[in-house]
Design a protein around this nucleic acid. Structure first.
Lengths: 333, 333
DNA sequence: ATGAAAGCGCTAACAG
DNA sequence: CTGTTAGCGCTTTCAT
């Protein structure tokens, strides 16, 4: 069933049908009613491909995520989908599983669909793809890259100030020896977080112990492994801060396995505030990143890029907030 | 940049360019090479909307999920995406958040995109939408509805045999008083699971206590609330089985909060085997549903519907497997 | 207020 | 092997 057929049946032209469907005001009320009747009778659904073809835009957005196993990202998806679907737009989702090749592949697929914008959350990607993307003039927004460019915006979490808050909290509670489990060494996001940790330490006049800087992989197993390494150290820290909650949960699990009491014998602070934080025992103190705000910012960046005549991408920053639960001990009591 | 332009530059017709792009064998190697050169030079990406329009199919699949907060569903998404992207197909994701209205809305959007198939995981939906869908002849596959029809297949988890395994396990360990936390009353999937539990009890010669049948909501808070209700009972069960892991995790959390030791004072068995199961303490014994198999089955059902001339949908069943971890006590020791 | 017609970018007969 | 051509279904001037 096509618009032309509907038109024929309703005794009008396809142009009129199109106008009715798109709510154009320049259609006689009676005609419109008649058309609508036919439309309903045949439960007509216009072909979006044709629409996209003529309009040159698709009302589809693309979201590229690195790990659908991590609630942080699926929460982001959740929030992002809520926005697009509320605007009657579609969402193309892709998962790179940390593979740069897959990033290329799905960007290409999205470009084929002529998406109206791409939200790229794949920190492992170098600048290469972006430059090649520019020629297609698709609004792009990235997460935690900390740099913008033509057609590409970025929203970054303010790790520094968040980690400062965490350090202050730990310091107040009497912690002096604090370890950090980061992400995969080499990735830019990992460096950012580790540097932020180091800076936060010094800002609070806390000493940095090299062996307290451990590498993780943003996943629980990495957190568990790093925790084991920390526990093997001659001098144990009293608290561990992690690059993300998923890591923290893994660390906690290892501690639980070994019968080491949290927070009595070891304190933990995570990052993100994924729902598991309040599902595990003890509930995890963490630095909360609001995924709704994140999604809103990213969507807005994309939308701005589409709407405004200005091609320049912007830099957005989002604060994380310390959420105190039960994984940090007060050593001063 | 369009195919016609590429054609002009390469000094051929757009048909030839099309052939080159689609790897048609009937193109002279030299011509092909020349075209490819131009294609590369301009980093040409064909317009998928035009392709979809002419071909009448889009190479897009739709996946409709009820709750992106539940790892069970995002795992399914993960697996499903792996399949589609490996075939260079796109995936439109939608989240209904348990709202039937949103189901309608996103089905409509997917129909507009002329998706090649829809995987609908939204148990709360009545048959209505399906019948109206049939007229569009889009392959559809549902989860846990247990019925097929024209153009709609279904893959269902075999709750009965899974729960029988669970009951046998509990019985062997000396459990006699077993509670069940189900889903939202009224939903078909909930009834299915509760009935399966009841049947499994009787198959194992175990007695059913009406007050041990508690309602949940498939989410942790529902599990926690139900657990509280169970704990308020005069005669406590020694074990609790839940309709899904998310519920079990909530129940466990409540138990942990109250200082009730699992499994010493209360045993738990979940359903699904989401990753949190091995992240919480103690690690949860559960009935594992392989999401990869699930996704593969659903995809296959969709693909069959597309390929085969036979319009009939099929019924698929997937077994769940008991995974023994540390949340069930052996009362006989 | 409505229709005719051109065209979006691509594919697939059909010719040659 | 390659080009011509006729659409696919919709939107959008431009007339009327």
């Amino acid at each position: 069933m096509s618009m032309t057929q509907i038109a024929k049946i309703a005794g009008v032209s396809s142009a009129t049908v199109s106008r009715v469907i798109n709510g154009s005001p320049l259609v006689n009320a009676e005609t419109a009613a008649r058309v609508r009747e036919v439309l309903e009778k045949f439960a007509f659904i216009p072909d979006g491909n044709a629409t996209a073809l003529t309009r040159g835009k698709s009302d589809i957005f693309g979201l590229i995520l690195p790990d659908l196993t991590n609630p942080y990202f699926t929460d982001l998806l959740d929030s992002f989908e809520a926005i697009t679907s509320s605007k009657d737009q579609d969402l193309l989702t892709a998962n790179t599983r940390f593979s740069p090749q897959r990033v290329e592949a799905c960007i290409r697929r999205m470009l084929m669909r002529r998406v109206d914008g791409i939200a790229l959350v794949a920190s492992e990607v170098e600048t290469g793809p972006f430059e090649s993307l520019m020629r297609y003039r698709v609004p792009l927004v990235t997460l935690d890259r900390g740099q913008a460019g033509e057609w590409v915006s970025d929203v970054s979490i303010d790790f520094e100030s968040a980690l400062e808050d965490a350090m202050r909290h730990l310091k107040q509670y009497g912690h002096r020896k604090i370890a950090f489990i980061g992400g995969v060494a080499g990735l830019k996001t990992s460096t950012t977080r580790t540097q932020a940790f180091i800076k936060a330490l010094s800002k609070n006049g806390l000493r940095l112990f090299e062996e307290y800087l451990q590498e993780g992989n943003y996943r629980p197993d990495g957190g568990a492994a790093a925790m084991s390494r920390i526990l093997a150290l001659r001098h144990l820290p009293s608290a561990v801060v992690t690059a993300n909650d998923f890591t923290a949960v893994g660390a906690l699990q290892r501690l639980n396995e070994l019968g080491i009491s949290v927070p009595r014998q070891m304190s933990i602070i995570g990052f993100d505030d994924i729902s598991i934080c309040s599902l595990v025992h003890p509930q995890l103190t963490t630095l909360s990143v609001c995924r709704d705000s994140l999604a809103r910012l990213m969507y807005q960046a994309l939308d701005d890029g589409r709407t405004s005549q200005d091609k320049r991408g912007r830099l957005y920053t989002l604060k994380a907030e310390l959420v105190i639960r039960h994984s940090v001990a007060n050593l001063k009591q």
